[in-house]
Design a protein around this nucleic acid. Structure first.
Lengths: 249, 249
DNA sequence: TTCCCAAGGTTGGCTGTACAACTCCAACTT
DNA sequence: AAGTTGGAGTTGTACAGCCAACCTTGGGAA
């Protein structure tokens, strides 16, 4: 349970999550009734339901009226923050992340950037080109556009800094929502040079727009991965839908 | 609002969703306070919060303690069912979906299939190979494995049937959870023949395991798309995280 | 045996209340 | 002019209760 500063339902959710990933209920097994959990944790049923809805959204348990909840899978589900940060992700799978900033520039935002980052005409943005490595092997090229207030933080970082999200968080930039588009694209000359592939080779592309709790865009990024280095995993459920297809541009 | 058989919070969510996609609050605008909405709809604040949590998970609105909710985007978000069915997706973007079953076979499940579909030794599965088209142009090859009870339904379908999910739903097979893995792979000979590309060409691959409300697997599928025909869109938030990266196999 | 039905258990949905934590803005102080 | 404080407004968390919808089980009926 730990940390009393956390909301009760989060503590319960974390505890149940551990119990599930430790296999306490087995895969395909049944959870105790909500009322039983409520009594066990000494909280109301509403709080238990809140905790379970978190696990439901993560795809750890199902729910169906009339019968106990079923454990769907016992795999560890990354937290939201891990899923956003290349560095955190790499460390969580036991790889050593690295990288370096190839190019960074403060320029007036073009029309697309103004639209994506919701800026006014004349506002400036920081464009960052970065190559990222796992165990010193280049696997991804990242092109990110930041609005001025965020870009200043990134520009102040060491070009070889492993993580940009950590300093951003320390400076109060918090990301709570991200919208991703995943498809395939061909390598351009920069990609070719930085990743060691040929121009035109297929790369797995993730485009991402992240926003803070106030709804202001924090970054607009395009990541290109060498095939075979990464896969994206998505869970969706009738309770919390999140994956969709889109016609490619 | 419509249909009284729907739960109240879903009606409210649908109504607010329409209001938002119609631009009633603008992009970046603020929603009325929960208590105001509660009074307007004649329901309790709890019900409003339930409705808003749906929109939150879809990335339509943010939420932050102390201040009103902000409209994140006004784009239409596909429903869970649309995102699962190629046919529904194609129609929703105004394309004419088609396809045909190339091969279907009832065979004993191999070890991987038993693991994925949670079957016993000796159980049989249906393996289906299918090519799918948009406006008569092949764009995707689909390899699906069904457990026996579901496979029987699919096997009874016309090989040229546009949709398998519709008959499945009519026969009481409901999907409530799906786990997807998205990456890039090379075309094999079947892909090459059916999609008209060369062996080894890069394809966007989606692997999917779907389960019903009881937690029993309903299908295990691998879809391979020609590059440029589709992109996957994902929203995740601190409230309902569901995207993760995975090391490629 | 097989089918049907009733009863009990369980989750879904909704209401109402209370307080805590936080944001924002205006008025005040320095 | 700049910083501080305080209060009103808003969402987050938690509790308690009620009924409906649904599933499972077991016993009775055919």
């Amino acid at each position: 349970m730990a940390d009393a500063r956390q909301a009760m339902y989060r503590q319960v959710a974390a505890d149940l999550r551990h119990a599930i990933t430790d296999g306490a209920y087995g895969s395909g097994g049944r959870l105790p009734a909500e009322s039983a959990l409520a009594e066990a944790y000494g909280v109301s049923r509403g709080t238990i339901r809140q905790a379970l809805s978190v696990l439901r959204a993560d795809g750890l348990v199902t729910s169906r009226r009339g019968t106990r909840r079923v454990v769907l899978g016992t795999a560890r589900v990354p937290t939201f923050r891990e899923s956003l940060s290349f560095t955190r992700w790499a460390r969580s799978i036991g790889e050593e992340p690295g990288g370096r900033v190839v190019d960074i520039a403060r320029v007036p935002a073009d029309e697309v950037e103004r639209e994506q980052l919701r800026l006014e005409a004349g506002d400036h943005v920081y464009r960052v080109l970065r190559v990222r490595t796992l165990s010193a092997v280049p696997v991804m090229v990242e092109r990110t556009v930041y609005p001025e207030r965020v870009g200043e933080i990134v520009a102040a970082c060491d070009p070889a800094a492993v993580s940009h999200t950590v300093p951003m968080e320390e400076r109060g930039v918090v990301i709570t929502d991200a919208h991703h588009t995943i498809d395939v694209t061909g390598a351009d000359e920069d990609d070719s040079r930085l990743l060691g592939c040929r121009v035109g080779d297929a790369l797995l592309r993730e485009r991402r727009r992240s926003t803070d709790p106030a709804g202001s865009p924090v970054e607009w990024a395009e990541d290109r991965y060498l095939p075979g280095t990464i896969a994206f995993a998505v869970h969706n459920s009738a309770a919390a839908s999140s994956l969709s297809r889109r016609p490619a541009l």
